[in-house]
Amino acid sequence: MAKDLLVTLEDQPGEGARLGEALGRAGVNIEGLCAIMEGGRGAVHILIDDVEGAKAALASVGIRVDAETDVIVSPALPEPELDTPGVFGGMARALAEAGINISLVYVASRNRVVLATSDNQKATQLLQSMM
């Protein structure tokens, strides 16, 4: 099961390479990634299938995993569907009306949506009923 790992990197050349190369050497594929740099540091979310392998690879180069989050990963969506205006709004509205808060969202490889919510089980059931 895929998980989102949160790491913090310095906002300087080579940090992304250090992360990506460590995972690559360990044979760990990055399924999705979101990085936001602010104030000289960056919060980097990485969607990973091999959590233990990723943690070991990152630790080997001095990168600490700050958080590990269970996420919902949608099936691959056809590009026209994902690129249709309002798709995310509809998903977010349905979750809001069910009282579910979104704490993390980004798009991963193969046009998949990654979500962490206040109730992943309920959110999964709701989103599956929409597809």
Rank of each mutant, 00 (worst) to 15 (best):
I63D: 03
Q125R: 14
G14P: 04
E81H: 08
V107P: 00
G40T: 11
K122C: 01
S129H: 03
P80I: 10
L9N: 08
G86M: 11
A108R: 01
Q12P: 01
P85E: 04
Q125K: 14
L127F: 00
E79M: 13
E31F: 04
R112W: 01
I102E: 06
E15H: 02
P85V: 02
A76L: 04
N111M: 04
V61W: 04
K122A: 15
E31Y: 06
H45I: 07
G90K: 15
G16K: 02
D83K: 14
V51F: 03
M131K: 10
G40A: 08
G14L: 09
N120F: 09
H45N: 13
D11C: 03
Q12A: 15
V105Q: 08
S118W: 07
V87A: 12
G89R: 11
K55Q: 15
E79Y: 07
D70L: 10
E31I: 10
D50L: 11
L77V: 14
E79W: 07
M1P: 13
A94I: 10
K55G: 10
S129Y: 00
E21G: 03
A22L: 05
M37E: 11
E97F: 07
E15A: 12
V107T: 15
R110H: 12
A35H: 05
L5K: 06
V73S: 10
Q12L: 11
D83L: 15
G53F: 04
R110M: 13
N111S: 14
L95Q: 04
A96I: 02
G20N: 12
A98Y: 06
L82Y: 07
R41S: 09
G27W: 08
A59V: 07
L47S: 01
A92H: 01
A26V: 10
L77N: 05
V7R: 02
L95F: 06
S129K: 09
V65M: 04
L6K: 11
G39V: 14
D49P: 01
L104R: 14
R41N: 09
F88A: 12
R93G: 03
L19E: 06
D4T: 15
N120M: 11
M91A: 10
E79V: 12
G40K: 08
D119F: 01
R41A: 07
S60H: 08
A54W: 05
E97T: 12
K122S: 09
L127H: 00
T84M: 14
G40L: 07
A56T: 15
L5Y: 05
R64A: 15
I46F: 05
R110N: 14
A96R: 15
Q125H: 08
M91F: 09
P13A: 15
T124P: 00
L126G: 00
M130P: 03
G99K: 12
E79F: 08
I30E: 05
V44S: 06
K122Q: 14
A17S: 12
M1H: 11
D4H: 10
V44H: 04
G89I: 08
L104S: 10
P13D: 09
A96W: 05
I72H: 06
A92R: 02
V61H: 05
A116M: 09
I100L: 09
G86Q: 11
N111K: 06
